[in-house]
Design a protein around this nucleic acid. Sequence first.
DNA 1: TGGCAAGATTGGAACGATCCAGAATCCGCG
DNA 2: CGCGGATTCTGGATCGTTCCAATCTTGCCA
Lengths: 347, 347
Amino acid sequence: MARMMSRPSVVPPTLADVAERAGVSRQTVSNAVNNPELLRHDTLARVQDAIAELGYLPNRAARNLRTRASHLIGLPITGVHEGTANALMDRFVHSLVETSSAAGYHVLLFPGAATGNPEEALAGYDDLLRSTAVDAFVVTDTYLGNPQAAWLTDRRAPFVAFGRPWHDPEASHWWVDVDGAAGSELATNHLLDKGHQRIAWIGWRKDSLLGEDRRAGWARALHARGLSTAGLASRVEDSVASGREASAVLLDEAHPSAFVCASDTLAMGVLHTLADRGLRAGHDIAVTGFDDSQVAQVVPPGLTSVRQPLEDVAVEVVRALKNLLGPPSSEPRGVLLEPTLVVRASS
Amino acid sequence: MARMMSRPSVVPPTLADVAERAGVSRQTVSNAVNNPELLRHDTLARVQDAIAELGYLPNRAARNLRTRASHLIGLPITGVHEGTANALMDRFVHSLVETSSAAGYHVLLFPGAATGNPEEALAGYDDLLRSTAVDAFVVTDTYLGNPQAAWLTDRRAPFVAFGRPWHDPEASHWWVDVDGAAGSELATNHLLDKGHQRIAWIGWRKDSLLGEDRRAGWARALHARGLSTAGLASRVEDSVASGREASAVLLDEAHPSAFVCASDTLAMGVLHTLADRGLRAGHDIAVTGFDDSQVAQVVPPGLTSVRQPLEDVAVEVVRALKNLLGPPSSEPRGVLLEPTLVVRASS
DNA sequence: TGGCAAGATTGGAACGATCCAGAATCCGCG
DNA sequence: CGCGGATTCTGGATCGTTCCAATCTTGCCA
């Protein structure tokens, strides 16, 4: 059956074809597509019929040329870090594709700062923009000292950041972020409610403002109950090995009954240490992670983790994009979303 | 400093601008960019200087319009399955972006068969193609009964599949795949070499040809050593829960000393069962997975897993794309790559 | 019924590149 | 020195759409 429907590989119909068929001018067809409210009822119907009969679809290249827009959003693909549990992007990318598609945009992937110096990589952004390959960017790697945001702002490149402008609170670009402090506070309070008193923190190096933010939530929760944080925090790099070492040291020196971690990767390190010592997560020692990665979902016995509302982030990012590319608006340029806690057997 | 370099937001230079500056015609500049060998040495140099001075970049929309090509490759994003350990696509997408970028292509993401009936989703493919949004597709979900390949072939849509045409060995489209049987054979032989005699298989439902292929490798390895497979195989759906149940049953009824699984997800299920029973993976019972997902890398004590050479797959996919979009070639249309085994502490 | 503004429709020009055919230049050789 | 052919360069036409300004209809009221 499908075979009978197979189209010969002819050239697709154009505006002119539709116009002829409907007995109107090209411009009228164009209006029928882009500004239907300009047409009289009966004309609109006639044109729409013709469009349907011919299976007309506007040629994107031509439209892009004329309107100087591509309706594409550039998303740099950053390096996959072996050994970390970050499937975070997977979920975000998926949500972003869905949401932006509904808004008439498609997502264009391109190599981000994969290799070499950042200057060179950023030049790639500029090329995409100048060649009208993309209308705007969505950037996610707003880590310590990443020059992206400042550079893009400087070049007047339209972009939305997933991540706050930590180093420049005055930054005027659009951003969406998740409240990390609230997240670790959620996790910590959950443990406190379970009766834990000595709750350790394993986070990132002090120069990671994102890490310090998440840490603040842990500290806030402890202080709120009159508990001290002294000696209970460790700051390392984001790897399983680091989490493993840090938790071993903390167990020996501070005797915590629970760990709150800045990432699932670090939490996995804790699980390693527990396994090494014959301790059972959730039974002997409680552990929580951050990101609700697939690892957290499938690892025995199940890792309690802070889940970022990536679907909502995507929605907000697209909203920001629309504001960015549309007429100037006075909406707030930064949005902070609240994470949730997914409780599993590790706590 | 950077601020001083900021460009005013002027219109980018066009071919005509470069032509004027270099004192040649538009066409000559076009040739300098696309067919440099047509120019005399000195003219080429002069034009290239002008290009560099003005920072000229061809306008993609205009080029696409004229050449009827977009230099974009469509990659449908399929649903994220919660609870499975499939970060496979992450790695593949990354490789594909890198490789195709080097070949002058960019990757366009769009919602695949996310919701509803496949017919509707496939119509989305057609739209992209007809509106000249993409030149070709890369499809990955060639699972049981997926109509994609046949449908795309029918519509004469150019595409390359990651995955063999299981249901139609005569299919004439381009594809790249990884030898699953060889993968499980690798894993099984590894266990046999370690002295295991009773090695169980946990795979997918029998109607998954991909699953049966992987299973065949396990059976082949056992038979090669004169061992029987009787009672040692279980076929379930791809979830942690299924792997958990299947392994529990197998442990009770067949008393295997090792498990070879068709996916990391199933292997995680086995790890759950082992944890339930106080058994230690790699010590009491050996386990191997398939895909070398991030989960395999970070879970204690480390999951031995078959790793697909996704980087090579991407290279082959791009090679196929070039053949597909370029002049007809007589290269073979199917490529089968060999996986490797990543040994960790679970075996 | 004439006048007029609002509404609906139209045709030419433009976006910036490449295709194509023809013109100019170069080169070697009789 | 002139000629033919290869090499190099050029200008107009074109891809399919939207912008723009102008024209044609319509509806309303005096």
